[in-house]
């Protein structure tokens, strides 16, 4: 099993990727952990996912705070604040 990670809008453009599949690394239990792990890729990842950036997160298509759990098979998404309506 793996997790699916999606990126939207300005974040998708800045990272140059809209989705990826990855094995959930050992020790990663929350969506905040996952964000830190992705930021550790460095470069634009570090810049875009820096703790100071207002990045919203969803797990299984539900917006969640950073401490929300992530488990194998989940769909996780990172995106900027929403601007619909």
């Amino acid at each position: 099993m793996a997790i699916k990670v999606l990126y939207f809008a300005g974040l998708r453009e800045a990272l140059g990727v809209s989705s990826e599949s990855m094995e959930l690394p050992v020790g990663i239990t929350t969506v905040g952990d996952l964000r830190t792990l992705l930021a550790a890729r460095g470069g634009k990842w570090a810049e875009q996912l820096a703790p100071t950036r207002n990045v919203r997160m969803a797990v299984i298509q539900l917006m969640v705070p950073a401490h929300a759990p992530v488990k194998d098979g989940d769909e996780v998404a990172f995106f900027p604040p929403v601007t619909g309506g």
Binding site: F8, A9, G10, N54, A58, M63, A77, F79, P80, P81, V82, T83, G84, G85
Partner: peptide
């Protein structure tokens, strides 16, 4: 409407004379 503005995953990108830009929340 108020909740949709902050809770529904939509994003607007504007085309302006200065180029395209994502709308800020």
């Amino acid at each position: 409407m108020d909740y949709l503005k902050t809770q529904a995953p939509f994003w607007k990108k504007e085309a302006t004379p200065q180029g395209e830009r994502w709308v800020e929340a």
